[in-house]
Amino acid sequence: MKGGAGGMGRIGSTRWSWAALTNRGGVLEIWAYRELIGRLVQRELGSRYKRSVLGWLWSMLNPAATLAIYALVFGVLLKFDPPRAGNGRFDNFALYLFCALVMWNAFYGVITGAMSALLDLGSLLGKVYFPPEAPAVAALFTVLFQAAIEASILMLILVCLANVSWTFLLWPVLLVFLSIFALGIGLMLSVWNVRYRDVGYLSTIALQFLFYVTPIVYPLSLIPERAMGLPVRDIIRLNPLSQFTEASRELLYGLDWPGVLRLVLMALISLAVGTGGWLMFKVRTRDIAEEL
């Protein structure tokens, strides 16, 4: 298809075929708009990393500060004990925390990015056609870029401490699963965010709650088996996000393989959430130009 975007299309047709999927309104039409996504990512990164070195430093300031604060509060003041690192030579709470935090940052970034991207660029949807998920997908790539920087720094430190193994290679796969998972949720929330103005407010609360019921600032072992008559540790373990943060720690800090079954489980969860969110988004945004 020459020219891709805005090209041939049947609007309002319901025939199913590969062409129908990639055509206007099709589930996979986003592919035809890669140029637009590239442009949006470039724009976002451009404004964030302008003036090279200082820009990079600024973009790392927030995650570094968060890491420092949590390490201080939970590692130094509350003395949470990290397990020994995979090479058996040291234990360090800040690094143990960082391995999970980099996952959380990506998750949080994709969700909030998807929500604000649709609000921000949505006004254009009434004037010109593009797939409404394009801004969210662009936000995803922007976040992945940031996550890659954070992860590189983390891995570099670990390498310097001689805590390195083949398990590092699996980490990017984990990040891909997490992105699909987060994008599914982010897309769903972004539609509601357009429709109802208090969704942003409520999801901030929900994300805050989720942050603390995921083993990030604490090791899972710290949670009692039962509290208030509930099997809290199992509940926290079953939180899908815990799978990602724990697996990230195992791969980078513990130098351990998470096991095929868990990986398959994570893949299935992210694919289910990702496609579910995507399909729901496609259906609910068919008339979005009228709502924005």
Partner: peptide, 21 residues
């Protein structure tokens, strides 16, 4: 231009479309 979805019927548009609305 594909910005609104028709409630009934269909639109078939063949070619790269630029709209100045």
């Amino acid at each position: 231009a594909g910005i609104y979805r028709p409630t009934e019927g269909r639109v078939e548009i063949t070619g790269r479309t630029s709209a100045l609305l």
